[in-house]
Design a protein around this nucleic acid. Structure first.
Length: 419
DNA sequence: TCTGGGGTCCTAGGACCC
DNA sequence: TCTGGGGTCCTAGGACCC
């Protein structure tokens, strides 16, 4: 177990999107609001605490949320503001320590072991952060402090909303034992139920179970991790820069019969988004994975690994298309599907593969690109035009075939990791 | 009126190599 | 008659997180 004080912090903005809306529009303060969705459909992206009191949660359909809370106000998101304010909060955190690990738009771990000589003990640093975020940005933020990341994260969840919890070394067990197992990172609904079936509901219950037994119940890795966490034995360091291991895009479009022209149009759009992000960072990947979701939420994935990394939009589209049809299989021609996804993994730097692209054979199934140089040049020109004149200035598809965006691109960007 | 979009990690089986 | 064991890579599915 790590020595020293509770110098790992987890800072987590409360109901982030909803809080931003309430900050921007004072008329929304103190009221139950949902960002995204609507009383007749769509998905709620975030709910204010006033709405959560009615049971409204992110991920819920709009009509379900309206059922639970009839006076719920649906507001459209200001996605650009979320990015701007999230970045501003991260700057406040960076003012305390350079060791900041941003986990998402609204959440970060900090290691403040080297900052106490400047700012005082961890408790004081937490108070400083919360005060500055409130005063300078206007948002509530909860902070947890402990000796490990995992415990700091649990502490911030317990602190919500708008609170601070410091777990003092030596008091970890008494803090953890009464808490529900669902607070442990990695325990979702399935594991929680499996544990409940065995009478295990609290972290204290969990700590009583021998590691071997836990591994038999939940699998080696999860069982091992859980028993380590229940013993508060977590030594993961705060990591400042992390690159994504995969890049993907997906689109849910309600039910549609799988018709070749439409499937191709959607895939071209998804491949374009993925490959543009790859090229913008000089990256390419060897494994292409598609997911097809059928009516009833059953989904099937197919992947294919090529010898040389690819990033050309057309190559990606062609590989994805073949995979999608193999996933749909020989089912009837009018099979209805509800979602298509494309992802690229096994990423490598593009510079290293440029030569391979130039030499590529004309079969995209077997190699990098076809003909690589030409496709790379077309993509490069289109990237340049879009950088100068906007994303819609040019594309592979006529506008009529482009799928209507269920979600604005600004929202997609909020969830993107660094490639 | 069903269920968005971006990711990570783990498991298990099979192919292939030595 | 049949045969070992370890390592690596690929693929498909699933749980989970924000």
């Amino acid at each position: 177990m790590p020595d020293g004080g509770p110098t790992i912090l987890h800072a987590d903005l409360d109901a982030f999107y909803a809080s931003v809306e309430q900050l921007l529009d004072p008329a929304l303060r103190g009221r139950p609001i949902a960002v995204g969705g609507g009383p007749s459909g769509g998905v709620v992206l975030a709910a204010s605490y006033e709405a959560k009191a009615f049971g409204v949660q992110g991920g819920m359909t709009g009509w379900r949320a309206a059922q639970l809370c009839p006076e719920l106000l649906f507001v459209r998101g200001h996605f650009g503001e979320y990015q701007r304010l999230g970045d501003a909060v991260m700057e406040v955190l960076a003012g305390v320590t350079p060791l900041v690990e941003r986990v998402s738009i609204d959440e970060a771990f900090l290691d403040v072991a080297g900052s106490t000589h400047l700012f005082g003990p961890p408790e004081r640093i937490c108070v400083l952060i919360r005060g500055r975020v409130r005063a300078e940005i206007g948002l509530p933020i909860s902070v947890g402090a402990a000796r490990t990341k995992h415990l700091a994260k649990i502490a911030s969840q317990v602190a919500k909303p708008d609170g601070l919890v410091v777990v003092q070394p030596g008091h970890e067990r008494e803090f953890l034992d009464p808490l529900p197992v669902g607070l442990i990172w990695g325990v979702g609904p399935v594991h929680r139920q499996r544990l409940a079936d065995l009478g295990i509901r609290t972290i204290g219950d969990l700590a009583q179970i021998p590691s071997g037994a836990l591994e038999r119940i939940l699998g080696h890795a999860v069982g091992h991790k859980l028993s380590a966490m229940a013993r508060n034995d977590d030594v993961r360091p705060v990591v400042t820069a992390r690159r994504a291991g995969s890049v993907g895009a997906q689109s849910a479009f309600g039910r549609r019969p799988a018709v070749a022209a439409e499937v191709r149009a959607v895939l071209a759009h998804l491949a374009d988004r993925v490959s543009r992000r790859l090229r913008a960072k000089g990256r390419a990947g060897r494994t292409v994975t598609v997911r097809v979701r059928f009516v009833g939420m059953r989904s099937v994935t197919r992947s294919h690994t090529v010898a040389e990394p690819v990033s050309a939009t057309l190559t990606l589209t062609e590989i994805a298309e073949r995979l999608v049809w193999s996933a749909i299989g020989s089912a009837s021609a009018a099979t209805e599907i509800t979602l298509l996804a494309v992802a690229v993994s096994k990423l490598a730097d593009q510079r290293a593969v440029q030569l391979e692209l130039d030499l590529a054979t004309p079969d995209p199934w077997r190699a990098g690109s076809a003909p690589g140089a030409a496709r790379g040049a077309v993509d490069g020109s289109m990237d340049e035009i879009r950088d100068r004149f906007g994303a819609d200035a040019v594309g592979y598809l006529p506008a009529v075939l482009r799928p209507a965006a269920a979600v604005p691109d600004e929202f997609r960007e909020l969830a993107e990791h660094d490639v």
